[in-house]
């Protein structure tokens, strides 16, 4: 009698353990496959590379580059995506041969600049990922250094009934 009661308790306990294990596995799988693949770093790299390719011609800074240079139309980048509350940011800085800032163009969410700095200190999922490209080149025979900082914080857009 006691043995049978013991078996019943054991099987009830056993199924409780199974439910806990199943819950753990289901939760882990849902978290793992539910989380999106993070490509922010690649995207910021592509954006930075795109800007560098656009403003540098034959190893020289484009002669028409200035603070009024229209990056969007010249580099084929969609302006609307860099308006307020955007997921993108870039900053182009040009330094002369004495390392003084000569030109600077910034577009997108300016707060990303701080986040890019913080990104090096702490790891956070929702932070943007940044990419910095540095090139030393010439402009009319004078040395110029360009620094392009690009950042992306774009996530996947979940759509229902498209």
């Amino acid at each position: 009698m006691n043995k049978k009661a013991g078996q019943k308790v054991l099987s009830a306990w056993w199924f409780f353990v199974l439910v806990i294990i199943a819950g753990g596995i289901v939760l882990s799988v849902l978290i793992y496959y539910g989380s999106e693949i993070n490509v922010k770093k690649f995207e910021s790299d592509v954006l930075g590379e795109r800007i560098v390719r656009c403003i540098v011609e034959n190893g020289e800074l484009r002669a028409d580059f200035s603070n009024s240079f229209d990056v969007f139309s010249e580099c084929g980048i969609k302006k609307e995506l860099f308006d307020k509350s955007t997921d993108f940011y870039f900053r182009i800085s040009v330094f002369d041969d004495l390392n003084n800032l000569e030109y600077q163009i910034k577009q997108g969410d300016f707060s990303f600049e701080n986040d890019c700095f913080n990104e090096k200190l702490v790891e956070a999922r929702r932070y943007p990922k940044c990419s910095e490209k540095k090139e030393v080149l010439t402009l009319n025979g004078n040395k110029r250094k360009i620094v392009v900082l690009a950042a992306s914080n774009q996530g996947i857009n979940k759509l229902s009934n498209i």
């Binding site: 980048i77 302006k79 759509l159 009934n161």
Partner: peptide, 22 residues
């Protein structure tokens, strides 16, 4: 527009924007 949409079910799909203006 500027969004790539991939859908593998009738319920919706997932979109991701590209910044190229082409």
């Amino acid at each position: 527009g500027n969004e790539v949409i991939v859908s593998l079910s009738e319920n919706g799909g997932r979109g991701f924007s590209f910044f190229s203006d082409y």
